[in-house]
Amino acid sequence: MSENNRTAAAAGEPGEPVRVVLVDDHDMFRTGVRASLDARIDVVGEAADVPSAVAVVRRERPAVVLLDVHLPGGAGGGGAEVARQCADLAPGVRFLALSVSDAAEDVVGVIRAGARGYVTKSISPEALCDAVVRVAGGDAVFSPRLAGFVLDAFGAVGAAGAAEQAADDDEMDRLTAREREVMRLIARGRSYREVAGELFISIKTVETHVSAVLRKLQLSSRHELTRWAAARRLL
């Protein structure tokens, strides 16, 4: 796919495979992922808990860390804790969260800890490779479900939601009309390319919008975001 080549080129290493560290406490899953990744990816290290993950990431300095949300060890913070402890390695090291969890606090937690995207473990191998390359190129990766979370959390549903949003205070706390469009299309299962075609914008622009939304998700102090996450807490 030409768009993947383009993102790899943007990362400044056209022919080189992306160096990846795999963090997951399930041996079987690590084996499965390693076997399914294609030639664009080079797995340089693996870890099964929080302290060893931090150590491996610090030693290897990979371009992308594939990070499970639930990990044993450390202070019990799981993947978010790893991302937070390695925050000083950015932007050279980027995190892509990979989880079976649907829980909002897991998703939002790890994104707010600094992850550049969130995909579920049922993702197809090709899609996972695409996502890794995309994150390595500095872009954000939103699965349909994450896009849905964002729309829900920012209260950007329906005409009333959009109107209410426009009147809202901080720029960080609301989505622009364009960002909302992009999020809705991704939630509907569109690829970035399809989104670009549909909105008559370039793929690069789509990526810019998605990155902007990610930034807002990470930095927003929007009270709905916390309230919304709290309302979906298990406890």
Partner: peptide, 13 residues
């Protein structure tokens, strides 16, 4: 496949 559903529901639509 894959088949996907996206539902958006608010008070107005």
């Amino acid at each position: 496949p894959p088949v996907s559903v996206y539902l958006e529901a608010s008070q107005t639509e």
